[in-house]
Design a protein around this nucleic acid. Structure first.
Lengths: 155, 155
DNA sequence: AGAAATTAGTTACATATGAAACTATCTCTT
DNA sequence: AAGAGATAGTTTCATATGTAACTAATTTCT
């Protein structure tokens, strides 16, 4: 007599997508609070600011690629930053559809205030891991990213 | 003459909160599509379903704790599942404020259809890692979770 | 026992987000 | 060079989400 087939079960607390999501949200929320409370920035605005600091003159489309934000989100984040006086739009000479985005002096100022805070929060977090473990985590995440999204690089 | 202090920089692509967020979103989205396309469930509804399958008669509050959803999100997910006929509310005899939630026969049916799909998608994903690496990842995530949220257990 | 404070869960409102439509510009084909 | 598509970015609209206010039931305190 064949054994009765047990119904499939799935414990959420050991299910990788769930664990990753909860962990990521806990971390992001903690850091987002920092941007928001101190500087009134959303996480999207912060990301735009970070890549613009890294690559002055970047276009909205390229920001989208580098941050994994869709173009609507980029458009809104950019609009907000401009309104706050942290970002400036310079019409591109060779393509009138795009703008070259650069941080204003004020934008650079608050960017440089935020960076050490963000880095120190990250450091606090990863200090729970040894150097070796940190490297290992990065490596494993890279493998997962590739498996999850082989078509395009996630970062 | 003191060296000019370099402005702080932060490359998003090596910033753990960013990497985690992007990875988690890529994975969740892939799986959420599966729930949604095939069964019309949101990720929140799926989570409620999973913990209810695991613990029949669970209360909304406890669902919130186990899934890291706030009570409004739980309330809405439960309402949706009831409307779809997958979940049933049984008034609790000892506390009239709470209900005991259980999956209906139909709910159990689709739960058992989803579980193998979800597990196989997870398996496909983690198959990029060796057994040892999988265990290591889980361990490192646990440490991070503790560091990120020492006050309460994330999972 | 009875008022005051907690707790379970829902509802209402304001804001965030995503998909699709749209405008303007550019590129490619002929 | 002119029309057909493609691309950059914005706007619109419908839906999702979070916060705060609310209702009802329970517990605590005196």
């Amino acid at each position: 007599m064949p054994e009765k087939s047990h119904p499939a079960t799935l414990r959420l607390s050991t299910f990788l997508p769930f664990r990753l999501s909860v962990l990521s949200n806990a971390i992001s929320q903690r850091i987002a609070e920092l941007y928001d409370r101190e500087f009134g920035l959303s996480i999207w605005q912060w990301r735009v600011m970070a890549v613009t600091a890294d690559t002055p003159g970047i276009s909205a489309t390229e920001i989208g690629q580098r941050t994994q934000m869709d173009k609507v989100a980029v458009s809104r984040a950019v609009a907000g930053l401009i309104e706050m006086g942290y970002l400036e739009r310079r019409p591109s000479t060779d393509d009138a559809r795009r703008s070259n985005l650069v941080l204003t002096r004020a934008g650079i100022g608050i960017y440089e205030l935020i960076v050490p805070l963000a880095l120190s929060e990250e450091a606090r977090l990863v200090s729970a891991l040894s150097e070796r473990e940190q490297a290992e985590l990065a490596r494993l995440m890279g493998k997962l990213a590739k498996a999850a999204s082989p078509e395009r690089d996630l970062w």
